[in-house]
Amino acid sequence: MNIFRLTADMTHLMSVIVLLLKIHTIKSCAGISLKTQELYAIVFTCRYLDIFTDFISFYNTIMKVIFLWTSFSIVWYMRYHKIVRRSYDKDQDTFRHVFLMLPCLVLALLINERFTFKEVMWTFSFYLEAVAILPQLVLLQRTRNIDNLTGQYIFLLGAYRALYILNWIYRYVTEPNYVHWIPWMSGLVQTLLYGDFFYYYFLSWKNNVKLQLPA
C-alpha cells in the first residue's frame, strides 16, 4: 500500500459518501444518472467476485464490502425509494448503457491476462468502469443546473482514478516486474473522459461561478 493508493481509495470512498449524503439527507437524486450507478454496481460485482476466495487484507475486504453495499444502496434508492425516485429525471437519463457493456465484454474476452471466468469478469469490470461515467456526463450536458454535491461527487470520482494512475507509476517504479496494462490503459481512458469536466469544474472554482458545462 502506498500513499497514492490510500488517498485514491479514500477519495473514492468520499465520492460515494457525498452521493449517499445527497440522496439520504435531501432525499434527492436530481442530476444523478441511474445508468452510471447501475454500471458501477456491475463493475464492483464483476471485480469483487474473489471477495470470498482470495483474502488480501482486512482493509481490502472491508472496502470491497463498502463499495458493493453503497453502490447497490444508491441504485435501490434511485429506483425504489418513494421520495428519491421522484427526483430522478428518467427522460433525460436515456444513455443505452447496454451499448457500453457489450463491447467491454467482447473486449474482455479478447484481451485479458488469463482466460478464466473470474479473470475475464475482473477485466470486464475495468473496461466497463472506464466508460461508466459517460451516461452521467451526458446527463450533465443536458441538465443545466449542476448542484454542488453532484459536482463534488463527479470531481471526487474522477480524482480517485487519477490518483490510481500515480499509484501505478509508483508501483511500476518501486516493484520489480509489476506490469498490468489492462488497469493502466482503462484507468487512463477513464481519467481522460473527465478531462473537460475537470476543466470546467476548475474554471467554476477559479471564477467562483456556478458550474456550467457548455451545451
Partner: peptide, 10 residues
C-alpha cells in the same frame, strides 16, 4: 500466492 495471480487493488 504470487502477486500476479491475485489482484491486490480495489
Amino acid at each position: 500466492e504470487e502477486a500476479t495471480s491475485t489482484h491486490d487493488e480495489l
